[in-house]
Computed example of a mutant assay.
Amino acid sequence: DNWSRIVTELLGRAGITINGPSPSDPQIKHPDFFKRVLQEGSLGLGESYMDGWWECERLDIFFSSVLRAGLESQLPRNVKDTLRVAAARLFNLQSKKRAWIVGKEHYDLGNDLFSRMLDPYMQYSCAYWKEASTLEEAQQAKLRLICEKLQLQPGMRVLDIGCGWGGLAYYMAKNYGVSVVGVTISAEQQKMAQERCHDLDVNILLQDYRELHDQFDRIVSVGMFEHVGPKNYRTYFSVADRNLKPDGIFLLHTIGSKKTDHSVDPWINKYIFPNGCLPSVRQIANASEPHFIVEDWHNFGADYDTTLMAWQSRFLDAWPEIADNYSERFKRMFIYYLNACAGAFRARDIQLWQVVFSHGVEHGLRVAR
């Protein structure tokens, strides 16, 4: 029928064959797959996978091929997708009230899952694979890289905005002798971070970052800016500004979009990160300009591909131990998410940036790599 003809032709442009022999070729199990994908776009593709309507041995290759070929821009724009982009422009989806949603719906999923999938420091963000061969090494390399870029000295006060399960706070306090204040909006994360750091000079607060009025020598924020939202970028940088001492350094670690738009992948928004939005270079530059100078901008997005694939293999290894707590549909959702993201980083469709800001440190900074 026409539906399958259109999808077959579209995927053909990316070198993908429906029911073909390659591990990246999707195997279709349900006749309505084609119609659903064309009518519902990204949401239909993801939900039909969760429903078992298609299989694909190497989803990561499937996604990187689709994105490299630019197919997402050739799919008919779904009315719902268009409305979602309009909503992101008009409304503040990350207002103080709504900001807590992602804490509940994603980060509180369960420590049983995250503690098995992630490294011992529970880093749910990109690792640094420059000289590492295991996930644990790569995450420690990332933590060390951050501390060296921040030029931490014993006795400094450090603010960690969006501190997660406290791995970075622990690492900084333990290895660099600094005192840390961490902020999170996930109750599960706060509890675990407090336990992890109980014998160190670390204070973990369950609150919105916008409530902070203090003075720190250093500020760091890893994997949190993706949840801030374009309406709040200016606020975010003004909060960092007012909390940073005149000679301080601020490091922002965030996933980035290669173009400036408000589009959020509808499937990711619904199932993984409600109210998330990836910033562009321009958006970060515009919002930070009144407050800081950019000392350094480092992109290692290709390392996120490696990180996500490492998480997937650990997730699959751990599944038998945690399967009783989750559904089979959840498993398919999570695998789809890890692979879709890995494919997007591999296609260089999305980036990972560490940006170092200061108020204009005298003599400049020699930034670690």
Rank of each mutant, 00 (worst) to 15 (best):
D1C: 15
N2M: 15
S4R: 14
V7A: 05
E9R: 14
G12A: 13
G12I: 14
R13M: 14
I16N: 00
I18C: 01
P23W: 05
H30W: 11
H30P: 04
L38I: 13
E40V: 10
G44V: 06
G44W: 00
L45E: 05
Y49S: 10
E55M: 12
E57H: 14
S64E: 13
E72T: 12
P76I: 12
R77I: 13
K80V: 07
D81R: 09
L83P: 07
A88P: 09
K97C: 08
W100E: 13
D112K: 09
F114M: 04
S115A: 10
M117N: 02
P120M: 06
Y121I: 04
M122Q: 04
W129H: 00
A138T: 01
I146R: 00
E148S: 09
K149C: 00
R157T: 06
D160H: 05
G167E: 08
Y171W: 07
M172K: 01
A173C: 08
V181R: 03
V183Q: 02
T184F: 03
I185G: 08
A187Y: 10
E188D: 14
K191I: 10
A193T: 05
C197K: 02
D199H: 15
D201E: 12
L206M: 05
D208Y: 05
Y209G: 01
E211L: 14
V222G: 05
G223N: 04
G223S: 05
E226D: 09
Y236Q: 08
F237C: 00
S238M: 11
A240N: 09
N243P: 06
L244N: 00
S257K: 12
D261S: 11
D265L: 02
V281Q: 10
P290L: 08
I293S: 13
E295I: 11
H298R: 07
N299H: 07
L308I: 13
R314D: 07
E321W: 10
I322F: 03
A323M: 12
Y326A: 08
F330L: 07
K331R: 14
I335R: 06
Y337A: 12
Y337H: 12
Q351K: 09
Q354E: 06
V355S: 02
H359W: 06
H363A: 15
